[in-house]
Simulated scan of single mutants.
Amino acid sequence: MKNLGKEETTQVILQERLIAILRNIKEEQLLKVVDVFEETGIKVAEITLNDPEAFRLLAVLTKRYSKNMLLGAGTVTSVEAARLAIEAGAKFIVMPTMMPDVIQACKDLKVSVIPGAFSPTEIHQAYRLGADIIKVFPANSLGTSYFREMQGPMPEIPLAAVGGVTLENGRAFLEAGARALGVGSSLTPRDILAKEDWPKLAELAKQFKELVNK
């Protein structure tokens, strides 16, 4: 997926409907996790920039997996961080909040951008500024009814549910109008990583794939 343009990248995310959020996972385990995701058909993942090694890890993953996977950067909080992530290979940028300067930088660099938003005002402003998808965060705190109600005034805005999304509630978010799910700890549980139980991780990944494909 190396040569996808901005619009094509956005379409892949909306078609796949699942963004795996990879946060604070050490390199050796991270490679195992992404191996499992590639084998089970998870095609979209973001590396969060909380980790001081994030840019290097993103470059490593891009070199190894970009043929079959779409890799982006998450927890991006500045224009400089966005640029460094894109240089490392990020095909999309995810933010925790709505930052107009980062949205504009991504537009200028022709990279898909997914800002975080909480209120209808933030969602609408982010979309008007050029965001490709809006990350509604924290989704579980707002509940599925929030997504359903947003379909009335803003049906054209693609929303991703992020924050507290699980196997148990993920389908409800999609049925309420979310176009994609961002899933972190529910997809990479710490107990599975601690035990390095890769077959169990593969089974979990398959369950999430089945959930979004129904």
Rank of each mutant, 00 (worst) to 15 (best):
I103S: 12
Q104L: 12
Q104C: 04
Q104W: 06
Q104M: 06
Q104Y: 14
Q104D: 08
A105S: 05
A105L: 09
A105F: 01
C106W: 10
C106R: 10
K107C: 04
K107M: 02
K107Q: 02
D108Q: 08
D108T: 09
D108H: 00
L109V: 03
K110N: 13
V111K: 13
V111S: 12
V111I: 15
V111D: 11
V111C: 09
S112Q: 11
V113Y: 12
V113P: 09
I114Y: 02
I114H: 10
P115C: 10
P115G: 12
P115F: 10
G116V: 00
G116L: 00
A117S: 10
A117G: 00
F118A: 11
S119P: 03
P120A: 15
P120I: 13
E122H: 05
E122Q: 11
E122T: 14
E122A: 07
E122S: 08
I123V: 15
I123L: 01
I123F: 01
I123Q: 13
H124T: 02
H124E: 02
H124Y: 08
H124L: 10
Q125K: 03
A126F: 01
A126W: 05
Y127N: 02
Y127T: 01
Y127E: 08
Y127I: 10
Y127H: 09
L129F: 04
L129Y: 03
L129G: 01
G130Q: 09
G130T: 07
A131M: 02
D132C: 10
D132H: 08
I133G: 03
I133C: 02
I134T: 05
I134F: 07
I134V: 09
K135M: 02
K135Q: 10
K135C: 02
K135A: 04
V136Y: 15
V136T: 12
V136L: 09
